[in-house]
Simulated scan of single mutants.
Amino acid sequence: MQKSSSTPLPLLDVHLPDAPSWLPLAWGWWAAIGSIVLIILAIVLRIRWKRKRHAPKKAALRLLDPKFGSQSPSSAMELLRQAALCYYPRSEIAHLTGKDWYAFLDEELGREVFIANEAQWQQALYKKQTSEHASALVEDCYQWVNEALPPAKRRKGNIGKH
């Protein structure tokens, strides 16, 4: 028997292909990234919009808060009117006075608070001495700002018509 030569053949080492890279991304990944960016942008814009919308309410509540200072009923009513003007059109609010103003406040609150105390309000607004009901009247203003602002869906045409 003949002896065969057992010399190895001159072969090169095995070269594996490069691992697939992340770039360039497939269109599905770009769509997912774009969707995430749009959702984050929408959330940020919504938060900014809400903060801006609720800023007048927060400022009015801070000024009307009985813990941080005592307001007179006339200054509380002035602050209430300013807060209402931030949310309602000036053409619908500015001309309201007396019973029409109190009716508007009660209509937006959903219960009679201001018309029931109309005599007390008229007395407190135009009297220099402090009334014994002053803190209750200021508390009514605080409640109105807290519960009625910002307004829900608007009902056109009913403001001041009673």
Score class of each variant (00 low, 15 high):
residue 29 W to Q: 07
residue 141 C to Q: 06
residue 15 H to Y: 02
residue 22 W to M: 11
residue 58 K to I: 14
residue 26 A to C: 10
residue 34 G to Q: 04
residue 68 F to R: 10
residue 136 A to M: 07
residue 132 E to P: 14
residue 91 S to C: 05
residue 74 S to E: 05
residue 36 I to D: 01
residue 32 A to P: 00
residue 38 L to F: 01
residue 105 L to H: 10
residue 93 I to T: 03
residue 140 D to N: 08
residue 41 L to V: 10
residue 34 G to F: 07
residue 94 A to F: 05
residue 31 A to H: 02
residue 137 L to C: 11
residue 62 R to F: 09
residue 71 Q to L: 15
residue 47 I to Q: 08
residue 69 G to T: 01
residue 24 P to M: 02
residue 107 E to Y: 10
residue 55 A to S: 11
residue 49 W to P: 00
residue 63 L to D: 13
residue 88 Y to R: 13
residue 27 W to D: 11
residue 119 A to R: 12
residue 108 E to M: 12
residue 75 S to K: 02
residue 28 G to N: 07
residue 70 S to E: 12
residue 99 K to W: 10
residue 128 K to W: 00
residue 35 S to V: 08
residue 20 P to I: 10
residue 45 L to A: 15
residue 79 L to T: 07
residue 85 L to A: 14
residue 51 R to Q: 04
residue 55 A to W: 06
residue 17 P to W: 02
residue 132 E to M: 13
residue 26 A to N: 08
residue 104 F to A: 09
residue 50 K to L: 15
residue 136 A to W: 08
residue 109 L to T: 00
residue 111 R to I: 03
residue 37 V to D: 00
residue 87 Y to L: 07
residue 134 A to K: 03
residue 111 R to W: 05
residue 23 L to I: 04
residue 26 A to Q: 11
residue 97 T to R: 14
residue 36 I to L: 15
residue 90 R to T: 15
residue 123 Q to M: 09
residue 51 R to G: 02
residue 80 L to I: 01
residue 85 L to P: 00
residue 27 W to S: 06
residue 110 G to K: 03
residue 92 E to L: 11
residue 24 P to V: 04
residue 97 T to C: 03
residue 71 Q to A: 14
residue 88 Y to G: 04
residue 36 I to V: 14
residue 91 S to Q: 09
residue 42 A to L: 12
residue 94 A to E: 12
residue 53 R to Y: 05
residue 113 V to S: 06
residue 114 F to L: 08
residue 107 E to Q: 15
residue 19 A to L: 14
residue 20 P to R: 13
residue 65 D to M: 00
residue 29 W to N: 04
residue 76 A to C: 08
residue 64 L to M: 05
residue 52 K to E: 14
